[in-house]
């Protein structure tokens, strides 16, 4: 009985391994991998889709694999295994700026290219950083847009996701900088952290509205907090009084943009970012030197590259509103 179970499990595992091994053997194409911060959320799924498209266009083997929790140890283990598999270029959306340091040397020793995409680790020695937009632009845009909608004054709440996420914390600091510099009457509350669940985000957003009856807006910093914040505004009956916003994909935000719980959202096209990531990986493997402006097949705009900071920039962040949200599907 028990042996039978083991044998069945063995056969199942074997089949899976066989499939994987088969696909690995068939290919002599360069391998490029992308490791997101967490798997199973629409944002990174869209990046995966873009990466796959680029892989098909460019003749690259694309691997997408990431941790199930936002845990830097698990992420590091995945990066190491990818290097051991002989992947030539690995892009990482780093959870924490120093979490890449332990494998940078190892990648160099193997002749593999380790670079960052979506979230950076500037001092780690990474080959380059594929940026969706500059952190400054992202932080400033959301404050500028929000300020223009509330007349430059009022109290604004911030609900973020994991307190440990470097990229989110950087955006928050640029929001605070912009508010201080340009809108002295705009008061940003201390950021609150909801972890990964929409439920906590909704609770915290509700409590912020209760504690600050004069609240004019709430910024959902992590894409995981978008639905919770928007739903809280709707449930509290504050549509029109409190403007919900954040870095939310059009598909997630669409129902809330339409009913007014969210005034606007700021994001970039994550599938284009995924596409650019794989393209950049291919250039690294081929040893191509990037120029200040690069024409990327499959992307409408040329992409700028700053050789000094090693940042490959997708472009300016886009602003989505109820009027234009239907034109996007990601």
């Amino acid at each position: 009985m028990s042996w039978k179970k083991i044998r069945i499990a063995g056969v199942l595992c074997g089949a899976a391994l066989l499939a994987a091994a088969g696909s690995a053997m068939a290919a002599e194409k360069p391998k490029v991998a992308f490791v997101p911060q967490i798997v199973g959320i629409p944002y990174f799924n869209a990046m995966e889709a873009g990466g796959k498209k680029a892989a098909a266009d460019l003749g690259v083997d694309f691997v997408y694999s990431g941790p199930v929790d936002t845990n830097p140890v698990d992420q590091l283990q995945i990066v190491e295994t990818l290097l051991n598999q002989g992947v030539q270029a690995v892009a990482v959306s780093v959870l924490d700026a120093s979490s890449l340091a332990p494998v940078v040397e190892e990648a160099k020793a193997r002749g593999a290219k380790l670079f960052t995409s979506d979230s950076d680790a500037p001092d780690s020695g990474r080959a380059l950083y594929v940026a969706q937009a500059t952190d400054e632009d992202l932080g400033h845009t959301i404050i500028d847009e929000l300020a223009s909608r509330v007349g430059g004054e009022g109290t604004i709440g911030i609900v973020s996701g994991e307190a440990t996420a470097t990229n989110l914390n950087t955006w928050i600091s640029f929001m605070q900088e912009e508010a201080k510099a340009k809108y002295p009457k705009l008061k940003l509350l201390e950021p609150q952290f909801a972890g990964g669940t929409a439920e906590r985000a909704a609770q915290i957003a509700t409590d912020l509205m209760t504690a600050n009856p004069d609240l004019k807006g709430i910024i959902a910093v992590a894409s995981t907090t978008c639905p919770g914040v928007a739903q809280a505004i709707e449930t509290a009956g504050k549509v029109g009084k409190v403007i919900g916003t954040g870095y939310c994909s059009p598909n997630t935000a669409k129902p809330y943009l339409k009913n007014g719980a969210m005034g606007f959202t700021v994001l970039w096209d994550p599938s284009a970012l995924g596409y650019l990531t794989v393209w950049a990986g291919k250039q690294l493997v081929d040893g191509v030197t990037l120029t200040a402006l690069n024409k990327v097949p499959g992307l409408s705009q040329p992409v700028s590259y700053d050789a000094r900071t090693g940042v490959l920039l997708l472009g300016k962040p886009a602003v989505f509103t109820a009027d234009n949200v239907d034109q996007f599907n990601f």
Binding site: G40, I41, G196, A198, P227, Q231, T235
Partner: peptide, 10 residues
């Protein structure tokens, strides 16, 4: 009913 939303970390 409350959140009209189900995400992976539920």
């Amino acid at each position: 009913a409350t959140y009209r939303n189900v995400e992976m970390t539920i």
